[in-house]
Every structure is written in C-alpha cells, then in structure tokens.
Design a protein around this nucleic acid. Structure first.
Lengths: 189, 189
DNA sequence: GATGCATAGTCATGAATATGACTAGTCAGT
DNA sequence: ACTGACTAGTCATATTCATGACTATGCATC
C-alpha cells in the first residue's frame, strides 16, 4: 500500500475529480510522488470501494460529467494509522546518478550535457516551487505562516521539494564543472 | 531498461559475485538506487545472456563456489549509449512526505516522532558518506582529487548522496520544530 | 469544415519491483 | 549437540507501475 495514502492526502485539501487529480497530483506532491492518470483512476475506484473516499456525480452541460471525490472519516482514520506506522526511508531512483557513477568509463561530453540539462530543469522547478511557497504564505513571513497559518502540510512538502531541486542544481553544476576541468587537464597533459 | 545499467555501472570498478553485489549495491549507488538480491541475480543472468558481462566460476573449498562478473566491451558500449540517451528526471517516492502533506489532518505527535527518527537515520547516512568520501580522496583535498584522482564517478555520486541526506536531516528537523511550535501555540491559545 | 486541443475517463497488457520461502554447506558460540 | 548467523544462490508469486490505444463531447482556430 503506497499510492493509496498519497491519493488520500491529495484529496484532503480539496474535492477533486480523477481528471483534476491527475493534473495536480505530481506537482502537489512536490515531485516526491508520481503517478499516471490510469493509476489514479484505478486507485480512486478502489478507495471508494473500501469506503475511504466518496464520489459525487456532477452533471455538466458543456463538458462531460465528472465525479468529485472527498475523503471520508474512515479515510482519515486510515491516514492516521498510516502516519503512525513505520516506513522505510525513501526509495530514490535516478538514471543520471547511474550515468555519473560510470563517469570514468564513458565520454565526458555526453555526461556534461546531461548534467547541464538537468541543472536547467532543476532551476525551473526551483522557480516554480518558490512561487508556490510565496502564494501559500500570502503576505506573511515563513516563520509567521508556519506558526499561525492553516494547512502547513503542503507548504512543508513544497519546502522539501525546493531544497531537493536546489541540491540537484548545485550538484549538477559542480559535477559538470569537475568533469570539464578534468577533460581540460587531460587534453593539456 | 533501468536496473541493467545500474548493475553495469556497479561492476565497472570491481569484479563481483551476485552475492557481493547484493551487499554493496545500495550503498555503492549512494542510496540512489535500490534492488533486492533476487533482482540482481536475475539481472546478472540476463546481462550475461546478452553478452554485456561475463562470469567466471571461482571454486572455493571452505565456502560455496561463486561466479565473479566483469563488464565486457559490449557492456561498455551499451553504457555509453545509455549515457547519451535522454532520461526523464528522477522519480522519487517517499512515504514520509505523504505523511507530512497530511499534517493538518492527523495527530502531530506521531508525525514529529517519524520526522525525528528520519533525521537520526539521515545523520547516520551523513556520517557514513563523509567517511566514504574521506577514504576515497585519501590524503588529497576534494579539489585536488576531483582534478587528478582516478575514478571520480563514485565520488561524485556519493557527494550527491551526502547532500541529499543533509537536505533530509535539515528538513526533518525544521518540519518537526514547526509542528512542535504549532502544537504549543494551540495548547496555549 | 477539418484539424487540433481540452475535458473526462476506460481497457488491456507488459515490464519492473517486492514478498516469502527454500537449498546447502561453514563457522562460532553455548 | 544444538542454535543461529554467514556465504551463495534459486524459485514462485503478488503487487505496483508504465505503455499505448480508445471513446466521447465541446471549443477554438485556421
């Protein structure tokens, strides 16, 4: 059981349809969880069957009808249980790390290219997360918001996402420059 | 295709048996890739069948015999191809983030407990990675090593692992203290 | 008036990952 | 003499995740 609780957590803040969920899910989880629409639809069906969420049909004239889902009390209990349960630390998986691991045995140019590309990607995420955080805390400072704001959950996860992408960017830049310098030394000597 | 290249990269530095690989794999990938022994054995079999690694039997008298695997030239070519291919950015998955995302709807005590536990775990990893890095660079400074050392690949991935765990620790501590402060405010007012 | 995109969702299938159990011998301790 | 841990590896199965294709309707745009 894994995606279940991520979906439950995503539905806490707002009533969503499967389609809407599919659009906001990845980003709402600050990129710490990813799922395809099909998985989300399937999970919503299961969750409803188990009584952890309820769906209500919303008839629309101009668009296809949709079903909006809300977390039930049983769903909240399940989330509480999940929160108390121990979970093993994050399973991360990144192709780029595998590539860098092999850095001494493959061409440096390709690797530097990938690192640079990823750094750019990370920077875009950073900008996005910073904007999101700014919006969430409104006029307040971070300290104020964390103390007195409501719904700090999404804010905190977003903070982790931001730090992660900063880590990504900084490391990519550093690794790329290290590889460039080595290449320069090699060609000189 | 994913685990394939991680296994190839792990075998670049040293000849390993499936059993040895299973022991060093997770840490060697700086926790950026995780695999169970069964997966690794199966992957080694496939890699050998595809001619990307070769195994040689080593007869042991006191222990069961083992097969040591090395990356072939074809394996190197495949790694090169993989390095040049584009890959989508990391898919991360962390239960703890899901839990924090639901922070405003579940009990704070359980969450603070989990965050504190994770911070401790992260610190242990930090210590480990720092020791590893120190060993790898020998007497040299990081700058020196990155410029003139051989095999900087594992060093660079380890650097990323270190930064990641530092990010984890810092965030866990910060989130836990934020939740504690909120709980205190609530009980007072 | 045909093309393409957005909403809202389903189905089938394959690949990757995780689980638990199981063989079989060696060695250290009690 | 028995227990448990370590080496070295296999088998079967379940769950999860990813892929591509497919149905509809409405709206804008060229």
């Amino acid at each position: 059981m894994a995606l279940r609780h991520a979906v439950l957590a995503a539905l806490l803040d707002e009533e969503l349809s499967g389609y809407q969920l599919a659009k906001v899910f990845d980003l709402g989880m600050a990129n710490f969880w990813h799922a395809l629409p099909q998985q989300l639809y399937a999970e919503l069906t299961r969750l409803e069957k188990d009584g952890l969420v309820t769906g209500r049909e919303v008839v629309q004239d101009t668009r296809p009808n949709k079903r909006l889902f809300t977390v039930t009390d049983a769903g909240l209990v399940e989330l509480e249980r999940f929160t108390e349960a121990v979970t093993k630390p994050s399973a991360i998986r990144d192709d780029l790390l595998v590539k860098v691991r092999a850095a001494d045995h493959v061409g440096a140019e390709a690797l530097i290219g990938q690192l640079t590309e990823r750094a750019g990607f990370a920077q875009a995420k950073i900008d996005l997360f910073e904007k999101l955080l700014h919006t969430m805390r409104g006029g307040r400072t971070e300290e104020e918001f964390l103390r007195y704001g409501d719904r700090v959950g999404p804010y905190l996860t977003c903070l982790r996402g931001l730090a992660f992408e900063q880590g990504n960017r900084d490391w990519c830049v550093r690794a790329a420059s290290a590889l460039r310098e080595r290449a320069a030394c090699r060609s000189r000597g």
